[in-house]
Design a protein around this nucleic acid. Structure first.
Lengths: 209, 209, 209, 209
DNA sequence: GACTAACCGAGACGGTACGTCCTGTCTTTGA
DNA sequence: TCAAAGACAGGACGTACCGTCTCGGTTAGTC
């Protein structure tokens, strides 16, 4: 999914795929090295060996470019089957935290989210590109745990069901992000185990409300 | 605490107190209207009816100005005694969420945090001005619950103890922030009750690790 | 002479003659409407309903395109036989001024000349395409006047002769251009008569130096 | 007359007079070296050791900057008293041509005039700054010659009188410009003498119409 | 009737300059 | 000494053209 492609089949010279990857790479590298606020479009273009124009032809402004680059990072997140729900959750927590602790990612993510609070289009973009993509991990983990018999089947009321999924999602993602970015403390295996225990032990009571 | 005061007693014309409040007000209003990234110092100064110089005389740069303005908002947070730990937590969650849902606050907070990821000084500034101020709420709530007998006394190992406090802090603050800013869903009483239940039920198990 | 033709006989599809005229028309129209400096190749191409490539296949750059378009305008200048030298000159002055007063022509001519002052190739191009073409009018007028006995035969020294022709040419062309473009005053029959009188009365003395 | 000054007495830091002269100098030098069309505002600013902003604060765009710089060149033109009308005219012709032959001036003048053909405001600016300033030379020369008895006193009809002055002005300025910029031939003393003779001998006849 | 060279439109490409905007500093006059 | 005003150096922004370069798709003229 290289860039907001002009789709079907167009006349004229097609957009360079090489430029696409060079730009994304350069953006991520620059993000890591100088951070969002000091990242300049000109710098990215130069580093990618590409004209600024080429960049602006694909993304309307610096914001969109960075969102795109950041979103791609979250594609890496996977939910490996570790044999138990507790282990699965701990593993994804560590993977998520690992991502956030990469120097570029956290700044970028925060910046992009911050930007989105005053830009509804960007907000929607983020929801689709990042949030929803992560939420599927929660769903996938639950399905697996249900097959293992660790969790009861879906609640009768689908709305009620969605509320529970959202709760778990917000708690996990929120706590990891907060610890990493705000408290600026490391997320290690011990913290992950303790946190996972808290959730799994508290969940049945929360579900039964 | 109007501005980083020029220490004890100085010669010459004293700083205008009116300017102080005009600047803070203008900053917050601008933050609400245009968001962090489009907020400019010149714009704030003009809106406050003040010269840019006056502004820079009080804060070193845009970041400090905004942190200052945002931090003040968090002073309002109090932990009223509602009679039970569950009620206390629910109440502070709702108060915190109420703060975040004010249009200006969320954008500002995120922006300032985002900026901080590449600026250690700003990061420390935030920790002192915002994070630590909130963490005392957790400590205060625990003390009160311990007096009521709802929670066991402090753990023997103070480090172990601190880890638990931090965990609870990250979980609460993180979940509320994430739901509000990232998921963009409302934090209502029902969600607060369910979330509080999850924490309180999970906490003993997490503490015993 | 539609465009700098691709020489004698080429294989492949021949260039479109329609494109040629569409481009020239569009160029002249654009010149009138927006002037040289705001005229863009892309705009001309679009107006002509032609691809930019088609345009660049015929002219090396914007300059050549415009020179070509402008030069063609000067082909119209003729020296009708009005019976006397004075009448001949007045008539060509009025024709020349008429050309310059057309809104597109003056801007174009000036612009092209201006451009040429830093581009020797363009300068030579203009000399051939515009200046020399006009100078033949002076020569033709003199020949005719000599046949009528109004002027003495060519001077013995051909160099001396050329100096006189050049002088007359510069005086006539210069004065008309200056009045039209710089002073921005109209060239009417009265001015033409007075100016012609000045030249014809002054010429013998200038020739005898 | 350094720049379109904000006049009377203003609050705030005054504009730098040094910047004014540095910019003008840099502009003229750049004009000489690279010509109008390749002159860039950024280049001028850099050469003047000044920020681009400083430049744009004084002139709205590249055009105005250059007009201003060029106009100043024409302030140098003076009409020395050489004892006779013929000598006076020859001397001013040579001075004027000398100015035009400076590599930067001609290109600049032409470019500015060309630009003006599509910009009425610029046109008026030029008339005031350049044309009228030169026309006073013609008036001054005539006065002097009248005092010497070389020319008759002003015509009875002031309009008639103005027409004659304009004619002489257009003929002199036009011929010199045309020879220099279009014909690209040198204006030397011999040409100046011959041309001056033509005018002075032709003038009485033109005046008596 | 197929081949083929040169054309055509469309539009992306690397560049360069534009003129605007904002930052944080400096320099005035005036209180 | 501070305040208001506003100029200053610097630097990024996003836009507009330039002249070049693919693309897929036409036309002639030649085999």
């Amino acid at each position: 999914m290289p860039s907001p492609a002009p789709s079907p089949r167009r006349a004229g010279r097609p957009r360079s795929a090489e430029a696409d990857v060079a730009i994304m790479d350069a953006t991520r590298e620059a993000l890591v090295e100088v951070g969002w606020s000091k990242l300049t479009v000109g710098h990215v273009a130069a580093r990618a060996g590409v004209a600024k124009t080429t960049l602006y032809r694909r993304w309307a402004n610096k914001g969109e470019l960075v969102v795109h680059a950041v979103a791609a990072l979250f594609d890496e997140l996977e939910l490996p089957d570790c044999g138990s729900l507790q282990a699965d959750i701990e593993s994804v927590i560590l993977a998520f935290a690992g991502l956030l602790q990469q120097p570029g990612t956290n700044a970028s993510l925060m910046a992009v989210v911050a930007e989105s609070t005053n830009d509804p289009a960007l907000r929607e973009h983020i929801r689709e590109a990042i949030v929803q993509r992560q939420k599927r991990l929660v769903l996938q983990g639950r399905q697996r745990a249900q097959r293992r018999g660790e969790l009861p089947p879906d609640a009768a009321d689908p709305e009620e069901d969605a509320r529970l999924v959202d709760l778990v999602f917000d708690v996990i993602a929120g706590a990891v992000v907060h610890r990493t970015l705000v408290s600026a403390e490391p997320v290690d295996t011990e913290w992950a185990r303790r946190f996972t225990t808290l959730i799994l032990q508290g969940l049945p009571a929360a579900a039964s409300l």
